[in-house]
Design a protein around this nucleic acid. Structure first.
Length: 1101
RNA sequence: GGGCAUGUGGCGGAAUUGGCUUACGCGUAGCACUCAAAAUGCUAUGGCCUCACGGCCGUGUGGGUUCGAGUCCCACCAUGCCCACCA
């Protein structure tokens, strides 16, 4: 009898040795082969770690230990994602303050994490609520803001009435509910007699139904990166980053690329009776797009005036305005268009007009005396102050065209115009920079009232029989606001049922997601939902293909946030449009395309009382759909367009427990930007204005969000104050809004009175950069290093292997990628080239694997079911090694596992047996039989090394463990004299799974050796070399030849390796069993698979 | 409604990627040790037929390809996860 396997003693002992020796602390600066092995850090919200966390951490740790033994300098950090709603709600629940509770949770979590025995670099841990950490979270916000990637916008957002905060789209879960007829009083008959479920959006944390609330919020412009985020994922065929395919698919779907076209539908009466085109500096009525535009407008029946402005080479705006007012008639139906300097003239004209015009178009306009290509205009001849109020009142519908290729007008001028005068900006690339092409279709479009739609099926355009606008579409508001100024002769383009429309829109806006879904579901179709809508009476659009006038509707089945917020409805080819058309008796016209031959159109097959009929698409009749798409787009002057489903990242949270958003609002600076363009850059006079890089007094973010000023970087962090009453207030404002000493501050720009932003940022911002933070924890604590400029970041990033839950597919993982790309673009983050030129060298996580879900006896673990397994109990009873190994043995790590109490005994027995065998070594003198067996055992040993190595690399821990069991069984069975080498290999193979036991066994062996020769001191097994197998030893000398007759196994016999087909045949026919099965039947052929089997095929088969 | 998985003994799961289905473990039964139990060890363990030798049938269902299919193709069924009025 040897020593007893006292796991408690062993585990405690080695954990303290490892900690003391710094076994898992890589040498950051000197590391030769840095390997960043990252595991998603936990949010310490609940009662402590549950076994699911432990499952995931262990899986990552096994891999890290394996890589460490393979000679890599492995960095395996751990920290806590302690900010955020999870922790805050937990504190609320138990009546504690999150700031204090955090410290308590922290202790408990770290203790638990240590007891598991993972090889974490304990010196480098971080907590997101540490001011030294969130200082940099805020710093990121400032970088995003400065570079125009953060903006403020008022829009309906997801609001959780229970958490009293907004939620990102990604945080709203769709949940099915069986409708309860009693509570659905407003949707009566539709719901009865149906088993259908309805979907409602609920808060991912508390399950409360989410409502829409209109709030002004901060957003990060993730949409700008949609294309790159998608591209780096690669395609279904392959390429892209090495990630679990299911996560890549989830991200692809979430980004949701679709390719189609944008097509304009003119509104009937959308061409104004008269136009005034004002040219710019050195321009004439005859140059640029003006002659073409005049022709186009006149062709449509309009009268076009292009005054030849005086002193065009030495302009004096006042004189030009006088000239225009004298020579051109204006009325309520005039459209005034100003190009470049002509835009200034137009604005000044508007100041002087007695009554409003129909609409104003500013093409490549500006408000400031600054240009990219030439010097300023003479200050004396210009008045750069604008009467914004008068201009707003007189401009009618204001349209601002921003040319993205413009080399003259600075890029921010369009926003400035919008800030001053309102209006809608359209960005486009002009035919010639600064909109100087002979034909500029975008300009023509802006002169005519039209509706732009996005469609993926332009090939069905001939079948578009009506249009639908989202309730939030700007045209709807504009029509509702329009007075009678458009009441011209035929009174077209005037909304006749304003009240009805207004009512519908108000109702739609008020509707919560729940209500919309509940009352929108149409069970009669089985698939879709009953759509509601209202016609814009008096408004007709012209189908650009058929030239037919079609009605225009408003309906909330069209989403404002996607595409252009307007659609062309093709009821014959789109199920949603079909339902709507059926309900409101709208015409259905089918186009002929190979997808839906006339007779089998799936939608028209169903009974419809109205007349569905074929439309003649002229030369496009029957054209292949893919060809027709682009041909028809060209035919109607549309443009190909790629659309993404992805929305910008809503980052504000009206909660307490998070990093305050590091911005202040300053009325004074807002006024500067809004009211008077010239003063903003007053300090720039005399500068070389040709440079577009010149210093501006305001950053991009500040110009785009007037009044919002970033807290200077040296003033970070903006500390979260201790607020006793941190309960969310539910008024759309964070509890910080009640703390005067917090929000009252001075503007960093002008020194005046200012108010701090009182919202905090989304938790996902904290976790989006923590992998960078880990590399600066030591230095950061000394307050020295910017984690982003830290040389270690360059050396160790990107992360080599990242393991985590698939539930973060579209949250954390997408945000982290976005931020990594953005920060690299901004120039504050640099990755090493250690990943080589692998796809996505700019990506933060080179390899990502999603682990599976750990369930308990077939069902999901949850507090409500009361089946959550507490790991502490099992560790006490069986030891951490046993629990670790058991969890890894359950099933493939990427698939998940089913935790069953009973089966843990198998692992427990296995480790006991390993202990018995190796802790109490037996060196028996061998007889001949044992020597022979030893040869076999050596082969098995090397085969096991191969198998375990390959399996761990592929995260197939269950089969690696099974291989170890087979090896142990065999050793016990043969009880051979084992070499010192073999006695070391087994513990090494065991080390990633059962680190404590392996260390103990190994050190026992070393001690034995040491007595003989080896004088080395303590070297942890976890820093030793991973075993290498000898391929020659693995080769088998014999194999089992399988003999089949007609594909059925009839006999097996041992055969030497390298048996030829002829030899195998002879062996097969010699077998008495085989003869019986052939029955003398004629042999058609034999199939021989070398080293495996021979199959005899007879005639009767 | 769409997308992605998965479906193998009483259970968790293996299967060299088209070649002996059920490795490894749990459970169960029997035996050994024990006064007895636990622990441990040994043996057996897919179903059906047979005293037996042995045979037949078996990887959700139905078809197909192949000398040979758990694996590939088609259709269907079931379960799970993700998404969902995205034009």
């Amino acid at each position: 009898m040897g020593k007893k396997y006292d796991f408690q003693k062993i585990e405690k002992k080695w954990q303290s040795v490892w900690r003391r020796e710094g076994t898992y602390e890589p040498s950051f600066g000197k590391a030769q082969k840095p390997f960043y092995n990252l595991m998603m850090f936990p949010y310490p919200s609940a009662e402590g770690l549950h076994v699911g966390n432990m499952y995931a951490f262990t899986g990552s740790d096994v891999y890290g230990r394996f890589k460490r033994m393979q000679g890599y300098d492995v960095f395996e950090p751990m920290g806590l994602d302690g900010f955020g709603i999870h922790s805050e709600n937990y504190a609320l629940k138990i009546g504690a303050h999150p700031m204090k509770q955090a410290k308590i949770s922290e202790k408990r979590f770290y203790k638990q994490l240590e007891v598991i025995g993972n090889g974490f670099s304990w010196n480098e841990r971080l907590e997101t609520y540490d001011p030294d950490y969130y200082k940099w979270t805020q710093w990121i916000f400032v970088q995003m803001f400065k570079n125009g990637l953060a903006y403020r916008k008022k829009q309906p957002v997801n609001w959780c009435p229970s958490c009293k905060t907004v939620l990102a789209d990604e945080q709203v879960l769709q949940k099915s509910q069986i409708p309860n007829p009693k509570s659905q009083t407003n949707s009566k008959s539709q719901i009865q007699n149906h088993k259908h479920e309805i979907r409602i959006g609920v808060c991912e944390r508390c399950d409360t139904p989410v409502v829409k609330k209109e709030l002004e919020q901060w957003f990060f412009r993730i949409t700008k990166y949609a294309g790159r985020l998608l591209k780096n994922l690669g395609t279904q065929q392959g390429g892209g980053i090495d990630w679990s395919e299911r996560v890549k698919i989830a991200q692809r779907n979430w980004i949701g690329k679709s390719e189609g076209a944008e097509i304009d539908f003119e509104i009937a009466g959308g061409v104004a009776p008269s136009y005034v085109l004002l040219h710019g500096y050195t321009g004439t009525p005859k140059n640029d797009f003006r002659p073409w535009l005049k022709k186009e407008l006149e062709r449509r029946g309009a009268k076009v005036h292009i005054p030849s402005l005086p002193h065009t080479k030495n302009p004096r705006v006042a004189e030009q305005v006088e000239f225009v007012l004298k020579n051109v008639p204006f009325n309520k139906n005039t459209v005034i268009l100003g190009h470049s300097l002509g835009a200034i003239v137009a604005l000044k004209v508007l100041e002087k007009l007695k009554q409003p015009v129909r609409s104003t178009v500013l093409v490549a306009g500006f408000t400031e005396n600054n240009f990219l290509d030439h010097d300023r205009f003479d200050e004396q001849t210009f008045d750069w102050k604008f009467d914004a109020k008068r201009i707003r009142a007189n401009a009618g519908d204001l349209r601002i065209l921003r040319d993205t290729t413009d080399a003259i007008v600075p890029p921010n001028q369009a926003w400035k115009l919008q800030n001053l005068f309102g209006g809608v900006i359209t960005e486009f690339a002009a035919q010639e920079p600064h909109v100087c092409g002979k034909e500029e279709p975008e300009v023509l479009r802006s002169c005519i009232d039209s509706i732009r739609v996005f469609t993926t099926r332009p090939d069905t355009l001939f079948g578009a029989t009506y249009m639908v606008l989202a309730p939030e579409h700007p045209l709807v508001a504009s029509l509702l606001a329009a007075d009678s100024r458009r009441l011209d002769a035929d009174s077209r383009g005037i909304l006749k049922n304003k009240d009805e429309v207004k009512k519908y829109i108000e109702k739609a806006k008020k509707k919560s997601e729940e209500e919309r879904t509940a009352e929108g579901k149409d069970f009669s179709t089985g698939t879709g939902q009953a759509k509601t809508g209202v016609e814009l009476k008096g408004i007709r659009a012209i189908n650009p293909a058929t030239k037919e006038e079609i009605p225009v509707w408003v309906a909330d089945y069209v989403l404002a946030g996607y595409g252009t917020g307007a659609i062309m409805a093709v009821p014959a080819h789109d199920e949603r449009d079909w339902e709507f058309a059926k309900k409101y008796k709208l015409p259905v016209k089918m186009t002929v395309c190979p997808h839906y031959p006339a007779q089998t159109c799936p939608i028209l097959d169903t009974a419809y009382e109205g007349e569905g009929h074929l439309v003649d698409s002229g030369k496009f009749n029957g054209m292949a759909s893919e060809t027709a798409k682009w041909e028809i787009t060209k035919f109607v002057g549309g443009a190909r367009k790629t659309q993404y489903r992805l929305r910008d990242w809503l980052i504000s949270r009206q909660r307490y427990w998070g990093p305050p958003i590091p911005l202040v609002f300053c009325e004074h600076c807002a006024a500067q930007i809004n009211a008077d363009g010239t003063r903003i850059n007053a300090d720039n006079i005399g500068e070389n204005l040709r440079s577009n890089r010149r210093k501006s007094a305001f950053t991009k973010g500040e110009l785009e969000n007037p009044g919002w000023i970033a807290v200077p970087e040296d003033k970070l962090p903006v500390r979260l104050p201790f607020v006793k009453d941190f309960q969310p207030k539910g008024k759309g404002e964070s509890p910080l809004g009640t703390v005067k000493s917090f929000y009252e501050t001075k503007c960093p720009k002008c020194g005046g009175k200012a108010r701090r932003e009182t919202d905090v940022s989304d938790t996902f911002l904290d976790s989006a950069w923590y992998y960078i933070g880990y590399l600066a924890t030591s230095d950061k604590r000394q307050g020295k290093v910017n984690p982003f400029e830290n040389s270690l970041a360059k050396k160790w990033l990107p992360v080599d292997t990242y393991i985590g839950g698939a539930e973060h597919s579209v949250l954390h993982l997408l945000y982290s990628r976005f931020l990594a790309l953005a920060l690299q673009d901004i120039g504050v983050l640099h990755f090493s080239a250690k990943g080589g030129s692998a796809p996505g060298g700019e990506e933060p996580f080179t390899k990502f694997r999603a682990h599976g879900l750990l369930i308990k006896e077939g069902s999901k673990m949850s507090k409500s079911k009361g089946n959550v397994v507490n790991p502490d109990e099992y560790i006490r009873k069986f030891g951490a090694d046993t629990l670790r190994m058991y969890l890894m043995f359950l099933a493939p790590f990427e698939q998940g596992g089913d935790f069953r109490d009973s089966s843990i005994l198998g692992i427990s027995r296995f480790l006991e047996r390993a202990w018995k065998l190796f802790a109490n070594q037996r060196h028996g003198a061998g007889d001949m039989e044992q020597v022979r067996k030893k040869g076999e055992l050596d082969r098995l040993l090397h085969k096991t090394v191969k198998k375990v190595t390959e399996d761990i690399e592929n995260l197939r821990y269950n089969t690696a463990i099974s291989a170890l069991m087979i090896l142990l069984n065999k050793i016990e069975e043969t009880n051979p004299p084992m070499s010192h080498v073999a006695c070391r290999i087994f513990p090494k193979l065991l080390a990633p799974f059962a680190p404590h036991l392996a260390e103990e066994l190994y050190q026992t062996q070393i001690d034995a050796d040491r007595k003989a020769a080896d004088k080395r001191g303590y070297v942890s097994i976890h820093l030793e070399q991973w075993p290498i197998y000898d391929p020659k030893l693995i080769e088998e000398k014999t194999f089992t030849l399988i003999i089949q007759v007609n594909g059925k196994v009839r006999d097996t016999m041992p055969a030497p390796a390298g048996t030829s087909e002829q030899e195998a045949k002879e062996m097969a026919f010699d077998s008495g069993k085989i003869k019986g099965f052939i029955h003398g039947g004629k042999i058609v052929k034999t199939v021989y698979i070398p080293g495996r089997l021979i199959n005899i095929v007879t005639e009767s088969c």
